[in-house]
Nucleic acid binder design. Structure first.
Lengths: 228, 228
DNA sequence: CCAAAAGTGTTTTTCCTACACCCATGT
DNA sequence: ACATGGGTGTAGGAAAAACACTTTTGG
C-alpha cells in the first residue's frame, strides 16, 4: 500500500455540492437555476446552485447552506442525497468531486421574494432546464428520475405540499411528477387507504363550485409505502 | 461569494472509497472484510476494503481497483454507488470523505484462491460482521438495506448468480437476501412471468434426484421490475 | 340556473396466496 | 425400491382498473 505520496496527492480534489432544488407550482415541476459565469467554458450560463464544502461541515450541511445562499430560500427544505459525481473532467478548470442533492420545498412556503425570478435565481419547468453548465444536465436528469421513482413507493411528495391541501391538489402534484393522468376515484381510494393523510374537517371555499375537504400529512417523515 | 481562502481551505479533505463487497455461498450472504491496523483507535480491527481515490481516476474506478487489491478479487464485479459519508469525525485521524459502493460477485466466479480466507481478507456472513472500524458498521448496514430493497424491484440478484443456475438456486439467493421463505410454486410463476430468464434446455444432473432445468438471465443489465 | 370542480360505488379483471402430490434420477 | 430434490395446478380472496353521475357552491 502506498503511503504519503505527498499532500497534493492526498488532497488533490475540491469537494463541492450541487443541489437540484425543486418545487411544484400550478401542476408544474420547477427546478431552481442559478447563473454560472466561468469563461471561457461557461460564459453567461445557467446551472444548479452549487458550491464548495467547508472544512467544518458535512456535505448535507453544505447543501443546506447553498440552497439558502444561491437558491435564495430561507424556509426549511427537505434534503436527500442523490449521487456523487466524480468524473475527471466534469469541471474543466480542475478536479471537482460533487455530492449531488435533491431538495424539495412547497411552493406555498416560499416567501414572495423567494418566488421571484431575480437576477441570480430562476424557477424553470424542469423539462425546459437544458444546456446547463458542467454536468448539471446529468445531475438534473438523475434527480428527476430519482424523484419520480421515490414518488411511487414513498411519501416524498409530502415535502412538496403545503401543510393544508385538497386531494385534487395532491393528485395534481403526483401527475406532474409521474407525467401520467391518474383516475380521480382510484387515486382517492388508494391514498386514503394507506393512512398517511389526516382530514382537517375544514373545507377550502372560494371557487364557484363545491368546497373541497382539506387534508394534511399525518407524519412529517418520508415513509415507504405500497406502490401508487 | 468567497474565493481563494487558500489551498488548505479548498482541498481540506481526503477522498476515499469503501466497498461492501458481497457474495452468496450456500444460501448465506457474505461480505468481504479486510484487516485495519490503525492504533490507537483501531488496532487489529476489521473493516471494509477501502482506500484513497487517485487524482486520475473516478470514484468507481478507485472502488474497482480496491476490490482487486484489498478484496483479492480478479474477476469482474458489479459496482453500484451506495452513499457518500461525510461526517466530520468518521475517521479520527482527519477529515476523510468516503464514497461507499456496493460490489457483487457470484461465488462461483471466484477462483479457488479468491474464495480462501487469507491473512488479509475474509468472507464472513453479513450479520456476523459487527464491530468494524471507522463507520463501517453503518456502511455495512446501509449496503445491506439497499441490496434488500433493490432485490425486490430490480434484477440486481443476477449479479450474484453464476451464468447457469436452477430456479431453486435463484430462490435460495432471494431467500438469503430477503431473509424470508418463499413459496416454491409462486416464486417460479412470478420469476418466469417477468421474462428475464432464458431456459437453456439443458439440465443439471448429478444428484440422486430429478435433474433441474438450467436458466440464465437474458440480459446482463440490472432492470427495474415489478415487486417480487 | 348555469358553470365548475368535488365527491362517491360497483363491476370486472388481474394478481397474490395457500396448498399437496407426482416425477426423474442415483444408489 | 427408496430417498432426494424437481416440478406442476387450482381455488379463493384481495387488490387494481375501468367507468359516470350527483353535489355544492359562486356568480
Amino acid at each position: 500500500m502506498k503511503k504519503n505520496t505527498g499532500e497534493q496527492h492526498l488532497r488533490f480534489a475540491v469537494l463541492a455540492v450541487d443541489v437540484a432544488l425543486m418545487t411544484v407550482r400550478d401542476g408544474r415541476l420547477l427546478i431552481r437555476l442559478a447563473p454560472v459565469h466561468r469563461p471561457p467554458h461557461f460564459p453567461n450560463s445557467k446551472g444548479l446552485p452549487g458550491g464548495l464544502i467547508d472544512p467544518k461541515e458535512t456535505a448535507e450541511e453544505a447543501a443546506l447552506r447553498i440552497v439558502k445562499a444561491k437558491g435564495h430560500v430561507e424556509s426549511t427544505v427537505y434534503m436527500e442525497q442523490l449521487y456523487t459525481f466524480s468524473e475527471l473532467n466534469r469541471d474543466p478548470r480542475g478536479r471537482v468531486v460533487a455530492v449531488g442533492y435533491i431538495a424539495l420545498i412547497p411552493w406555498d412556503e416560499l416567501s414572495t421574494s423567494e418566488r421571484e425570478d431575480t437576477d441570480d435565481a430562476w424557477w424553470v419547468p424542469i423539462e425546459e432546464a437544458r444546456g446547463l453548465a458542467y454536468d448539471h444536465d446529468l445531475i438534473r436528469k438523475t434527480a428527476h428520475n430519482r424523484l419520480r421513482a421515490r414518488a411511487t413507493y414513498t411519501t416524498i411528495v409530502s415535502k412538496l405540499m403545503p401543510t393544508e391541501f385538497t386531494l385534487t391538489d395532491l393528485e395534481r402534484v403526483y401527475e406532474s411528477i409521474l407525467k401520467t393522468d391518474l383516475d380521480k376515484r382510484n387515486f382517492r381510494k388508494k391514498i386514503l387507504k394507506i393512512q398517511v393523510l389526516t382530514a382537517l374537517n375544514r373545507k377550502r371555499t372560494g371557487g364557484a363550485f363545491r368546497p373541497a375537504e382539506l387534508y394534511r400529512f399525518t407524519s412529517p417523515s418520508v415513509k415507504e409505502i405500497e406502490i401508487l
